[in-house]
Amino acid sequence: MPPPIRRISLEQAPTVVPEPAASNGNGHAAAATRSAASAAAIERMRCDQVTIAYGQKVAVNRVELPIRQGEVLALIGPSGCGKTTLLRSLNRLTELTPSAARGGRISLDGEDVDTLEVTELRRRVSMVFQQPNPFPMTVFDNVAYALRDGASRRPRKPALAEPVEHALRRAGLWDEVKDNLDHPALRLSGGQQQRLCIARALAAQPEVLLMDEPCSALDPVSTTTIEQLILELREQIAVVIVTHNLQQAQRVADHVAFMYLGELVEYGPSEQIFHAPQAQRTRDYVHGAFG
């Protein structure tokens, strides 16, 4: 893998073997490394009293949340707690659902996202989905599509070779696909497809990367690769990840937001949420009392 900004050596990397919280020192060490990173964090996005409803049903209820560059924010909570809805509202994808309505304010670098051109907002706040979803085109074009304007086929391939390579390198996929750039992207394996989707999302140089359970459809090896990648990316951009997997949240997140029934129950450093949760519901959830 090429050096993006800072490589995380294997000894330093948080363990990828699922282990119960607080039972070994390794997790603490990783958390400590992470809090060092979050000290330099810059706030990029902020949710102010964000409420999202589908018709009469309130999915997200008055959530306050900062999203910082230099750290990974994990949204956790049981199914249907509104974490995906909240994530999708950050780049206004919720607007695609006709019945969804949003209140409150979401800002990107202090600007209300509603005042931004939606295409510009989404280029700055990119997203990776739960299912790998490469477009029906070649590996190269999948990434180039994000770099080109609209439906245009320009700039042509030679001009884009470098940025495409850069994006694929950042996603740790370059070595695997550099000889097959003209192959249909759907011929890649699931893990490669998902990394291609990450490369695609990174190609346009976003400031925030939203990830909606990016590993839930993948095998453990691909999951490890992608988690490594997330840790490398947080230096350059703000990463928000929705996950059902508490071990994963523990491995990659600097800050964790626990949501329950649309409300933000607790927000804090990963260490606090997993080792010393303040709220009873958080304690029950992270200890597996419900889910």
């Binding site: 994808l93 510009e120 990119s126 477009f135 994000a146 609209g150 439906a151």
Partner: peptide, 25 residues
């Protein structure tokens, strides 16, 4: 699948560009 359309829109593409470059193929 719907998430394919959303993936294109999430890259800052318009519905028109999504139709031409993603859905038509």
């Amino acid at each position: 699948p719907n998430h394919l359309r959303e993936a294109s829109l999430a890259l800052g593409k318009t519905v028109g560009a999504t139709i031409r470059r993603v859905l038509l193929p």
